Simulated scan of single mutants.
Amino acid sequence: MADQTRVPASRRVTINTVAKAAGVSIATVSRVMSGSSSVTPDLAARVHKVADELSYRPSSAARGLVLGSLRNMGVILPDLANAYFFDVVKQMHHGATADGYRMLVADYSGDAADELATALDLLGQVDGLVLLSSRIPTSGLKELARQSTPVLLVNRVELGVDLPMVAVDNFTPMMELCGHLAKLGHRRIVYVKGSDLAWQNRERWRAIEMAKVLGIEATAVPSDGTIEGGYDVVEEALTHEPTALVCFNDLTALGVISKLRERGLRVPEDISVTGFDDIDMARHLAPRLTTVVSPKIDLGDQAWSLMRAALNNETTTSPPLISADVVIRESTGPVPS
């Protein structure tokens, strides 16, 4: 057997190499490597022995074709630099790994058409696709819903779209955040927006607009949910003479506070600032950031639970919105006299 399995180092060991060395067909090696019970134990042991001696590692793509599953899970998200997305994906990864899947993560330019093109391209390479904070228009989501590969929406709720979805409640905690500011005497605020294509941004702005019942007048200024975007928009925001800046997320708030310091404005003595998501840096700023604690672990767990059900063709109902809590820290204070 030793002579049969000696292969020159320059040659790549393939399934054909193993089949010839073991004296069996390629189909038999394929069945053995996929764990098929149709091969006798003695023959399976012989094939495994030869494969081990040759240091053969079967192609996951080829094995996927035999099993009807690639064991790959795709995830598309807007910004790989945002720690919030990383935490959610990491939690989904725990579930995927336990179920024998590897995750392929991709971001895109921020353009909805680019996201849709990326999604359609990935569908042929994965068993399921997760769209995290997707910006694809509903027409594109309906196109994805017609595909045979399961697609899951995370952090977006769209009525009339036949896709499983799970999201964090953005409206209620933003209303609570506005209530906190109103109690401190704030009446004129500026909302530093995220992308207009983001469902979370629309929900947060909807809550801020509703806060007029609390006596709050709000103006929105465009930004993009990044540190630099928050930094760049402060000059425009201050022209509205706000007493508080409500930021789309914590990254935006980091940039806002940095620029306010350059302007010689103290937070919160001169102006209050809030964020959303409670990324790790939010707790280590000076002052520490008042924000909303987004339940990233629960979101990741529920997302994978829904995807597992879709992969198994199980009928599920999407869970209600996951609640999120406001955490009050030192970046908000009373309106300056």
Results as ranks from 00 to 15, higher is better:
214 L>F: 07
215 G>F: 07
203 E>K: 15
203 E>R: 15
172 T>S: 08
217 E>A: 11
200 Q>M: 13
218 A>E: 00
199 W>Q: 09
163 L>Q: 09
216 I>V: 07
187 R>T: 14
212 K>H: 14
206 R>F: 03
206 R>W: 01
203 E>Y: 12
214 L>P: 03
160 G>V: 06
201 N>W: 04
219 T>M: 00
219 T>H: 00
155 N>E: 09
214 L>D: 03
174 M>S: 06
186 H>P: 08
211 A>T: 08
166 V>K: 02
204 R>Y: 10
165 M>H: 12
176 E>L: 11
166 V>C: 02
187 R>A: 13
178 C>E: 12
204 R>N: 11
176 E>R: 13
214 L>I: 05
161 V>Q: 11
182 A>S: 10
219 T>P: 00
218 A>G: 02
202 R>N: 10
165 M>S: 15
160 G>S: 10
158 E>G: 06
160 G>L: 06
176 E>A: 14
210 M>V: 12
216 I>P: 03
159 L>Y: 12
216 I>C: 05
160 G>N: 10
168 V>R: 01
216 I>F: 04
156 R>A: 13
209 E>A: 10
182 A>N: 04
170 N>V: 01
212 K>M: 14
189 I>E: 00
199 W>D: 12
180 H>L: 15
168 V>H: 02
185 G>D: 02
194 G>W: 08
159 L>D: 15
189 I>T: 11
176 E>V: 08
165 M>N: 11
209 E>R: 14
198 A>M: 13
217 E>D: 13
177 L>E: 11
188 R>S: 04
178 C>G: 12
208 I>F: 03
206 R>D: 04
168 V>G: 01
211 A>Q: 07
159 L>N: 14
158 E>K: 08
